[in-house]
Structure formats: C-alpha cells, structure tokens
Amino acid sequence: MSWDSISNSEFLGTLIDTIRDVLPIILVIFGFQYFVLRQPIKNIKKILIGLVYVIFGLAFFLVGLEKALFPLGELMAQQLTDPKFIYGTASDVLEFIRWQDYYWVYIFAMAIGFATTIAEPALIAVSIKANDVSGGAISVWGLRGAVALGVGIGITLGSYRIVTGTPLHYYIIAGYIFVIIQTFFAPRAIIALAYDSGGVTTSTVTVPLVTALGIGLATTIPGRSPLIDGFGLIAFASLFPMITVMGYAQISHWRANKQSKSEYTHGG
C-alpha cells in the first residue's frame, strides 16, 4: 500500500483517537507517580519514547487495517451471508433455514476468528509477559495459537447459534459450567492466565470484523433481529479461549508427564 492512498486527515484522526485512549492512563500514572509516590520515574526518557512508539504503532496498525482488511472482511461477511450465494437463487426460498447450508459461513467464521486473534496486539503483549514469567515454559506462539483456535471455535459456534436462533444464554451457561469443571483439572499455574486470555482476545482487530459478520448474518436470515441476535459473538469469542488455553496446558502437562515417566522406566 502506498502512502498516497491514505489521506493525512484520516491518519491524524486515528492518531487523535489513540491519544484520547491513552490520555487517562497517562494522567493516572503520572499523577500518582508525582503526588502519591513522590518519586521521579527511572528512565523517564526511554519510557516516554516507548509511549510514543505505542501510540504511533497502534495508529499505523489501525489505519492499515481500516484501509485493507476491514473493508475486505466486511464485504466477505456480506457476500457469504447473502441468500443468493447460499441457495444460488433469489431470496424467496428462505422459508425454511437449514443450518447445514451455511457451511461457508462457518469456515469463514473459523478463519476470521483465528486470523484476527493471531494479529491482536493485546494478546501479543500478554503472551510476551507469560513467556517471561514462566521462564519459557509457555511459548508465545503456543499461547497465541491456543487462544486463536479458541476464538475460531467460538465464532463458528456463535454463527451457528445465529443461524439456528437458539438463545444465547444456554450456550454461555453451558460454556461456563464446562470452564468451571475444567478448572479443577487444569494445572494451577495456567488458571489465571487462561481466564485472562478470554478478555484480551477481543479488542482492536477482532471486534469490528466479528460484529460485521454477526450483523450480516442476523440481517439476512428471516426472523432474526440484528439488534438482539447480532450481538453475542464477542461473548463466544471470550469464552472459548479459556477452554482451549486450559486444554493446551493440560495436554502439554500430560505429555511432559508421560515423557518423564518413560525416561524413568528406560533409565531405571
């Protein structure tokens, strides 16, 4: 993409939005640093440069997404949910909905959930931290992959729910019960991180695309209200990563156990 295709005012607008997003945080941090802790900040110069990097990086990232990925994603969501595409004819055959006919939507939902989550800046931040803290036991890519898989599954199931029109809270409650049961079997060290990964997945990248998909589905399927049924995909996207991250930890834990056991028998 060339610079010319982006008007300066657009970039400036995004930049201002990002700064407005960061400003309260900066106020709280510096206010406390100077009035409560009463200490000068170490490496203040480096931290300020870092903040500028964060703001500009995020603004670049968002403008780039808006220019390239969002229109494409929204267009695809619209086209895939179009009755013409699904039935090959005009929309008057939509008396009955068979959920199987929407398989392209599910594939798209899976792909978009996975792809947007891999690119999510907040998730990258948490993965770096988790990798640091665990001393490398949790790999950055392993965690990102597990979370992205969870979001993919979540969005797919969420689309299925919109197509069939079943109430949201049944799924959510069932998911919660599953998470609770899984918590008892998961390694203790992963639990907090797994809970966190539910929240971090859904920010800058995922929300606009997923919302477009949900609204598109709810508008084209008769009997669905975009206001009631279009929401709720994000809820799925925050629920399933918890399950996959705990699952990821359980599998790697189990494999490590098995390995050490077999080493023991071979060595002994």
Binding site: L51, Y53, F60, L62, P121
Partner: peptide, 20 residues
C-alpha cells in the same frame, strides 16, 4: 503498514508500558 505498526507497538510496549 499493519506490520510496521505492530512492530512499533511491540517495541514501545517493551520500552514504555511494561517497565512503567
């Protein structure tokens, strides 16, 4: 541009937000 933004963001994260 997306990649540049992400790279800047991560760099800034490690320099600014994490330490503070």
């Amino acid at each position: 541009m997306v990649i540049l933004g992400l790279a800047l963001f991560i760099k800034g994260l490690e320099m600014g937000l994490f330490p503070i």
